[in-house]
């Protein structure tokens, strides 16, 4: 069993996890895939635990996925979302979190519009905190499910594999978690998109053995890839006119572009997709290449593993 170094109560980022910790989580997640799909009797590992979904920003899939994962582990969940929460009354994020904790909740699943908020909440509360997406910073459970999905195609050792993450990297928490997770496991990462959405500084944010390279030419990198992750164009996070009208012609994964991928390369997307903008429907639905819905299924297994880890119910 590999050594666990960080505070296991929380999962705040993939940046803060070691490669061994990530691999262990993936191994546990893998063992949960049957239970996640409801094909075996539900586990009672977290019986009696109360998990609060504290979502200061809208979410459908992540919140539902955490709820399903908690249910499969026999935990109770409580939803506090956006406009119904005290945040709209001017209470600070931290005060809201402390209030919910004071009711005896065991774990907070936190999504915020602002980078860093879950980590700041974790410093102020005793209970567990899972970051379910903080602004454009990280979305660690998404990063883990992406890794699990790639492992399922290529085996557990991903060293030397190559992936491209394409599109609005700057505003993407999915991309940042993926970059940390992938490079820690030795995957080489190409980041592709327009300059103002993929600044060169990304080449230095990760410390893992895998490399990070910024490129502005999608066609040039396609033939070298084992996987391509298309990011959603996040209109709600754009500042200025970052998306230009030639975005699709330059950076979309069209049917023509998909033909340039090696035969066994997989296509990923964190969803929700803008079909016909960053990805063509034919590619998204290609049964040989697309693992987009497998990613969603893996999300439940990964979140079961993370909940178990944080609440010590192993």
């Amino acid at each position: 069993m590999p050594a666990i170094s960080t505070d296991r109560r929380h999962l705040l980022s993939l940046e803060s996890l070691s490669a061994d910790e990530i691999l262990l989580l993936l191994e546990v997640a893998s063992s949960f895939t049957e239970a996640a799909a409801g094909r075996v009797t539900p586990s009672t590992k977290l019986d009696g635990k109360i998990i609060a979904n504290l979502f200061f920003e809208d979410s459908t899939r992540t919140r539902s996925s955490f709820t399903v994962a908690a249910t499969r582990l026999s935990a109770q969940t409580l939803d506090l979302v956006g406009s119904t929460s005290s945040v709209s009354k001017g209470e600070s994020l931290i005060d809201t979190a402390r209030t919910i904790e004071a009711m005896g909740v065991d774990l907070l699943v936190v999504r915020t519009r602002e980078a860093g908020a879950p980590a700041q909440i974790a410093r102020e509360v005793e209970c567990s905190v899972i970051n379910a997406g903080d602004g454009s910073h990280e979305h660690p459970t998404q990063g883990l499910l992406d890794l699990l999905t790639i492992q399922q195609r290529f085996g557990n050792d991903l060293t030397g594999k190559t992936i491209a993450i394409v599109g609005d990297v700057l505003n993407s928490r999915v991309a940042r978690s993926a970059i940390h997770g992938l490079t820690k496991l030795g995957v080489n990462v190409h980041l592709v998109g327009p300059t103002n959405l993929v600044p060169k500084t990304f080449e230095q944010i990760a410390t893992g053995p895998g490399s990070v390279e910024v490129s502005y030419d999608l066609d040039a990198v396609l033939p070298s890839l084992d996987a391509i992750m298309m990011l959603r164009v996040q209109f709600e996070r754009q500042r200025g006119n970052a998306i230009t009208s030639d975005y699709r012609s330059q950076y979309a994964l069209t049917v023509d572009r998909a033909r340039k991928l090696p035969p066994d390369a997989i296509v990923m997307h964190p969803g929700p997709m803008n079909r016909g903008l960053e990805i063509d429907s034919e590619v998204a639905d290609d049964p040989d290449r697309s693992v987009i819905f497998q990613q969603v299924s893996n999300g439940v297994a990964v979140r079961m593993a993370v909940l178990t880890r944080c609440l010590g119910g192993s």
């Binding site: 940046e15 980078a115 860093g116 454009s136 910073h137 990280e138 940042r176 500084t201 230095q204 944010i205």
Partner: peptide
């Protein structure tokens, strides 16, 4: 503006 801001996703 720099690597740290990019990492932290701060403007």
């Amino acid at each position: 503006a720099g690597v740290m801001a990019t990492k932290l996703a701060l403007i």
